[in-house]
């Protein structure tokens, strides 16, 4: 229970943002990216507390407004756990400062988009006039040495990955949202990811550009590489076409939207969902429990749109993961085994040092993906275990 004196003095609240979305209000503390959905009456309570009213005054107001007595002690405990209330001696957080906003406004301005449109149109026109510029798997092999191809494509992809993620981050900063960049995984894919939880705190119509900024960047990069290839010859042209192909491949990877790619966030934003993935997984668990006559788990909270979309998204999850499992069993594992066997065969057959090095590099690149994905999965598991043991 809240101490009596706590109820009769104003709380020291950190800077909070409020976004009214009709049936729910999204409230959060932007400097630590802690956001929640509240019913409108809960948001009104929090707003009054953050404006300096004492909890006792707010509870009285609530009773007069809604004719019910609110469990203020429970509410205060929850908002304290969320980090909304400044602890004794803790400095009150102001609205966070966001850098690079000027650059972001320029890069996502109408004139900039006109330039991007011209570049893409130019690349399409150049490809129509010279079909050898079109994406083809042959474009990967711009050099006779597989060693050169492997290392160039592997190392050279990182600037393009950073450009994609940088576009997400900058378009967020244009709206005053901070973000952070890190390595993560989706199933066995290694990904660079931009965490931007604050996106839920801006109106829905403004969320589309930060979500689409990565894909737009991939298209512009592909266009620039294609136009450069059109204007050059030899190895430069070859490398440009190879990177244009791999950039398009990364764009296609976004179609695995059950892995919560950018396309997933686009779909949930269009549909107005707030927790689709978790609600869908929960729906599958409950269906399975019912089928096996086990105890049905409690329903995961979500918005009306989540429950509606979960009816089809839950099946997409099943189909998506099943397809991935089939591809792992029929393609990924056999290919990995094949490459490892190939390395040993070449060593056994007394192949040249170049041939053996060639195979070893390819094998290391392929195996490294699974080793890194496994290490990231282990890190997630350890982090989750630690969080459960120390829920503070």
């Amino acid at each position: 229970m809240a101490a009596a004196d706590t109820l009769h003095r104003p709380l020291r609240m950190h800077h909070l943002t409020f976004l009214d979305e009709g049936e729910e209000v999204t409230v959060g503390r932007p400097d630590i990216d802690s956001y929640i959905h509240l019913p409108p009456d809960g948001a009104a309570l929090l707003r009054r507390l953050s404006q300096g009213s004492t909890p006792a005054e707010v509870a009285e107001w609530y009773h007069a407004e809604y004719g019910e007595t609110v469990d203020m002690a429970d509410f205060l405990e929850a908002i304290t756990d969320l980090g909304f209330v400044a602890a004794e001696g803790e400095e009150v957080a102001a609205a966070p400062r966001v850098k690079w906003q000027g650059l972001a406004r320029v890069l996502f301005s109408k004139p900039a988009f006109a330039v991007y449109g011209l570049l893409i149109a130019g690349a399409v026109a150049a490809t129509v006039m010279d079909p050898t510029l079109a994406p083809s798997y042959r474009n990967s092999f711009f050099h006779p040495s597989l060693l050169v191809v492997s290392l160039t494509l592997f190392i050279g992809q990182f600037p393009f990955l950073i450009l994609h993620e940088g576009a997400h981050a900058l378009s967020g900063r244009r709206l005053g949202l901070n973000s952070s960049l890190r390595f993560s995984r989706r199933l066995y894919f290694i990904v660079l990811e931009t965490a931007m939880d604050g996106l839920v705190s801006v109106p829905r119509a403004k969320r589309f550009l930060p979500i689409l900024a990565g894909a737009i960047t991939d298209l512009v990069v592909t266009a620039v590489l294609t136009l450069t290839a059109a204007a050059t010859t030899g190895i430069v042209r070859g490398i440009c076409l190879a990177f244009a192909l791999t950039t398009l491949m990364r764009l296609l990877w976004q179609c695995y939207f059950f892995l919560r790619t950018d396309l997933y966030y686009l779909v949930v934003t269009v549909l107005g969902c707030t927790n689709l993935h978790a609600v869908s997984r929960n729906l599958l668990h409950r269906r399975l429990a019912k089928l096996l006559r086990l105890k049905t788990p409690p329903t995961t909270p979500g918005a009306e749109a989540d429950y509606k979309a979960a009816r089809w998204y839950s099946w997409l999850l099943v189909v998506g993961y099943a397809a991935m499992l089939v591809s792992v069993i029929t393609v990924v594992i056999p290919s990995t085994v094949y490459v490892v066997v190939e390395v040993f065969d070449r060593i056994d057959a007394g192949a040249s040092a170049g041939m053996i090095a060639d195979s070893i590099v390819v094998a290391v690149l392929i195996l490294s993906q699974f080793v890194i994905a496994g290490a990231l999965a282990l890190r997630e598991r350890l982090r989750n275990t630690t969080t459960l043991e120390n829920p503070s």
Binding site: L38, A78, V149, E165, R186, F189, T194, I211, Q369
Partner: peptide
Amino acid sequence: MKKISIRKTETVRLTSAAQPL
């Protein structure tokens, strides 16, 4: 006594896949 329901928002993680060959 009325309890206020509080629900954490979904995390937003915008990604790009790194790929070996």
